[in-house]
């Protein structure tokens, strides 16, 4: 996956969520770390085609993420996205949450959609929960179903926005395990996380975003092992204190 961001800016009123962010890299698994409110989510939303930059350019695999809603929708259809929480549609069963987009977005026949959804659920050990509503699932199970939905159509890139931030440690582990499995199987992933150990293990490129800019970026061994920027060192010292 090739990613190129040039002076990328996104403002909400007076707030500069992204402030002339520039980043150019090639990676299979890109992990975004950094303080809350630093711009990770905004950057992921732009990468996922859910939002538009105020100015600057963003291209992934040489596709420019700009232009009209149709173009962005086309981009979203080719990829998968998972938010922190509330991903699932609460009025639909786990299975239907997966089959509905397969049918309506990807044009699969109902039988084929069910088949694909079952494969996806089985892969994550969720076959027993197929007919349950989201409210009947634990937070970790909900995220796993969300993940199953995000990969059911074979997305080019999987975008995960703090997928475990709303979960307790046990559930966090069960979700991170799946993400690691996907990464090991060759899935291209961009994810943001506060789990530094996980970031280090799964990433082949880490970028630290703070105040809407890239503070430092590079291979995990470098960034975690010998960070160049003083601010990176301070951030890592703070978040690693208890780990």
């Amino acid at each position: 996956m090739k990613l190129h961001a040039e002076s990328l800016t996104r403002t909400y009123g007076e707030v500069h969520a992204l402030d002339h962010l520039t980043l150019s890299l090639e990676a299979r698994v890109l992990v975004l770390i950094g303080p809350s409110g630093g711009g990770k989510s905004t950057f992921l939303r732009l990468c996922g085609g859910l939002d538009r930059a105020t100015s600057g350019q963003l291209a992934i695999n040489d596709i420019l993420l700009a232009g009209d809603e149709r173009h962005l929708q086309q981009w979203r259809r080719g990829n998968g996205f998972l938010f922190q929480q509330f991903n699932l549609f609460p009025h639909l069963t786990a299975l239907r949450n997966i089959t509905l987009p397969l049918e309506k977005v990807h044009g699969m026949r109902p039988a084929a959609a069910i088949e694909a959804a079952r494969i996806s659920l089985d892969r994550f050990g969720l076959e027993a929960h197929a007919e349950k509503l989201p409210a009947q699932l634990s937070g970790g199970q909900q995220q796993r179903v969300g993940l199953a939905r995000a990969i059911a159509h074979g997305p080019g890139i999987l975008l995960l926005d703090e997928p475990t931030s709303a979960l307790d440690p046990e559930m966090t582990a069960e979700v991170l395990e799946l993400i690691q499995e996907l990464a090991a199987a060759g899935q291209h992933i961009i994810l943001s996380t506060h789990e530094m150990g996980f970031a280090r293990a799964v990433a082949d490129h880490v970028a630290l975003i703070s105040a809407g800019k890239i503070l430092e970026s590079g291979p995990p061994a470098e960034l975690f092992g010998s960070p160049r920027e003083p601010m990176t060192q301070r951030f890592l010292a703070k978040v690693m204190r208890f780990s």
């Binding site: 979203r76 938010f83 929480q85 699932l88 549609f89 987009p101 977005v105």
Partner: peptide, 12 residues
């Protein structure tokens, strides 16, 4: 969040 999720799965 529901609107975001719906757009994220590719719905128009």
């Amino acid at each position: 969040a529901q609107l975001d999720s719906a757009r994220a799965v590719g719905f128009d």
